[in-house]
Nucleic acid binder design. Structure first.
Lengths: 217, 217
DNA sequence: TATTTATGTTACCAGTTGGTTACATAATTT
DNA sequence: AAATTATGTAACCAACTGGTAACATAAATA
């Protein structure tokens, strides 16, 4: 007697959604290392054949996953307040707000952090695609931080924010691994409060320098 | 007729050295993903059995590799000049020097960058051991940067340097992957010159703030 | 020189990977 | 109701992984 499965439901869209959801679950559990057809199919409780049939393989699946919304935090979420209110904050406060909210957004999205980590260590067609599709949005974030008609404070505004953004990303990834950095315990909220203090100090210093330069002109 | 190898030389220490060297070669070629007994043995041109016999397995091998000197850059190399000369530089210049030399040192050591990248994405017994064995040396680096009898400029000196260090590491790893960051091309020397300018700006601003505070006391 | 020990190789093991083919069954159409 | 199509499963493939056991041979010792 061949296998008689009890009430096997068939629904294409629902199955595709299950597979996409499984990608997120695997990322959250095992990180990008778990991203294989076998592991994902197992997580979804489906046969891996469906990944090839519906997405053309692992590559197509990851690409489709990267395009799902609610994956990357929106600019609104990062801003955390109405635009009208935000744009009147001094640069210092805008930066601090964005950095703080970005970190909170990532804490809610372990799968997103896993993707960031993945992009750190592999440069294949998959990660290239993911990076490219996010570059514009990250540039928008910088623009948001600087303000629309942004008056440069230094000649290196973009580099300074890029460096601090890189630092934030780096520290967030290490936090997700529960591994320390430079002797600092990233699991402690106090540590992050001190990073916030450091940011405030840096931007205050830059503002002061800017005013000094302006005054002497 | 069974295999008759022509002149098989046998020398334990030399063989161990070959295996350790192979680890570095694999790291430079394939990154940490290549760190498997099969791949390493193939690279060394030896049987993987020897890894188990001489190092007790992959874990012991990596641990032994991490303890080889000439792997991590020395404090002298990072300082790049006699200590007597270095210690009289202003904080701003000390930091810039260390950041620049650290990056140069990493460019010469692709295997070290691969290890850093590995530590970014996995937290197993291997990477934990590697991180722990380097923590002290990284703290020494910060001390070197700050100077012996270091007068704090801000309440957040350690956090600021840690963040900028994280940024440097992050950008260096991405450079090694030839993947962009925030729209910046890390392959261009000009980009790194601008990062240097950004660093100078930040530290100059902090120094200025510091003097202002001192003056008003 | 004969024997023992240390060193290196080959062959195999079970488990996992990405990927394909053959098949079963639910849903839809005729 | 019968035939067809869409959807899901199971079984298999070759290639790889970490790990071990059996064997060969060079080097050291008796």
């Amino acid at each position: 007697m061949p296998q008689t499965k009890t009430s096997q439901v068939k629904n294409k869209e629902q199955t595709k959604a299950k597979i996409l959801a499984a990608v997120g679950e695997v990322l959250a559990e095992d990180g990008y290392q778990g991203l294989g057809v076998n592991r994902i199919a197992k997580q979804a409780g489906l046969a891996k054949t469906l990944i090839y049939r519906y997405f053309g393989g692992l590559e197509g699946l990851i690409q489709a996953y990267g395009e799902t919304d609610s994956f990357w935090p929106s600019v609104d979420e990062i801003r955390g307040m109405p635009e009208a209110e935000f744009k009147h904050l001094p640069l210092r406060e805008r930066c601090r707000t964005i950095f703080r909210n970005f970190r909170i957004a990532l804490k809610k999205r372990p799968h997103t952090v896993a993707i960031y980590a993945w992009e750190m260590v592999e440069n294949n067609e998959l990660t290239k695609g993911l990076i490219a599709s996010r570059t514009q949005s990250s540039l928008n974030l910088v623009k948001e931080m600087m303000g629309q008609n942004h008056v440069e404070m230094t000649d290196y505004d973009h580099e300074i924010t890029a460096m601090l953004g890189a630092a934030l990303l780096h520290l967030t990834i290490r936090e997700s691994l529960k591994s320390p950095f430079a002797g600092l315990d990233l699991d402690q909220q106090a540590t992050w409060d001190r990073f916030d203090g450091a940011l405030e100090t840096v931007f205050t210093a830059i503002e002061t320098l800017y005013k000094t330069k302006q005054g002497s002109q």
